[in-house]
């Protein structure tokens, strides 16, 4: 998988928001890579910049107040940030689609399901589609997401569907155009746990079958554990650690990842940890050096001044923390 050319590559992305009292330096050099057919997870607390990253990748970041200060987003080697709106719309909605957290807000309440499908499919086919073809494709898409009686469902309005069905319709819509990359922003969070499990299993099977790459953005560690191949942990606008999922869960290295994993209540018991003390920093004056150093229990002098680079501890397991820098490694040996 590593040998393949990456599908999406976010390089040193920096995004600021201009607001009252100064500039919020939200993204501080985000690096993220997705290979074809790969399932990637992006986890972090509320306000860590997950959604900003993905909005920038899809070019739906509100500008102003948002400003892309640096970095590039390469989709098949072409920089999305430098594309004209026309070129962009050739990629977005055709090769790259998105699922949102709240399916009710993603569907327009005054249109029935078929009418929701129409613009999506038309856009993907560059408007060369008859009504019959649209209907046929929509039926197929609903069958993909295991919805019974698609003919009848196409005439239904969002309000007539249950929460789980709505999210399935959204997934069907996002995958109807057979995109190469699907960005799913908290796809199960608004649903009940038994329905979330069903929706995630469905999504998982479907992207496997269609060989779609997926970026799963979530704050729930449990959701990514069972779904994705590789996991990025984000804190305050930085990727602090990336590793194959199981490896990251069994051996988290960054103190933030450790705190996060620790804080999840376990079904096997063992009490609840205190979590991570402090809170996400004020983005207008982020701490110098490592942004986590104000909350870190292993803080060293260098952390206060210098931003840690990514250290590759093992193949595919990178961590942005001086604890794993060459000097420390030697000291430990």
């Amino acid at each position: 998988m590593v040998n393949k050319a990456p599908l999406l590559e976010i390089k040193n992305l920096r995004v600021h928001y201009k607001v009252y009292g100064g500039v919020l330096k939200v993204l501080d050099g985000v690096n993220l890579t997705v290979y074809p057919g790969e399932k990637v997870g992006l986890v972090g607390e509320t306000g860590c910049g997950k959604t900003t990253t993905m909005k920038t990748a899809l070019a739906i970041l509100p500008v102003p107040p948002g400003v892309v200060v640096g970095g590039e987003i390469l989709y098949k080697g072409r920089n999305l940030l430098a594309m004209s709106p026309r070129q962009l719309s050739n990629v977005r909605g055709r090769e790259m689609t998105m699922i949102f957290q709240d399916p009710m807000a993603a569907l327009n309440p005054v249109f029935n399901v078929e009418q929701q499908f129409t613009p999506v499919l038309k856009h993907a086919a560059k408007n060369h589609l008859s009504n019959k073809e649209i209907h046929a494709q929509a039926v197929l898409a609903l069958q993909d997401v295991a919805l019974a009686d698609p003919e009848r469902l196409l005439q239904a309005y969002p309000i007539q569907l249950s929460g789980g069905m709505r999210q399935r319709v959204c997934i069907g819509m996002a995958l109807a155009t057979r995109p190469q990359l699907l960005i799913a922003d908290e796809p199960g969070t608004a649903l009940d746990v038994t329905i979330q499990a069903q929706v995630l299993r469905l999504l998982n099977n479907l992207v496997d079958r269609l060989n779609t790459s997926i970026i799963l953005i979530t704050h729930s560690l449990g959701v990514v554990y069972e779904t994705v191949d590789r996991l990025y942990v984000m804190y305050a606008g930085n990727i602090v650690e990336v590793a194959p999922t199981r490896k990251l869960f069994s051996n988290p290295l960054h103190p933030y990842s450790q705190g996060l994993m620790d804080a999840v209540p376990k079904l096997s018991g063992g009490g609840i940890s205190q979590g991570i003390s402090g809170r996400i920093p004020d983005y207008s004056h982020p701490p110098a050096g490592c942004r986590f150093h104000t909350r870190c229990s292993h803080v060293m002098e260098i952390c206060r001044h210098q931003k840690p680079p990514e250290f590759e501890v093992e193949e595919g397991h990178k961590v942005a923390c001086y604890l794993y820098g060459p000097k420390n490694q030697e000291a430990a040996v």
Binding site: G21, G278, P281, D282, S284, H285
Partner: peptide, 9 residues
């Protein structure tokens, strides 16, 4: 600087 973050101290 907002006072909200100072006052933790």
């Amino acid at each position: 600087m907002s006072i909200s973050s100072q006052s933790d101290l």
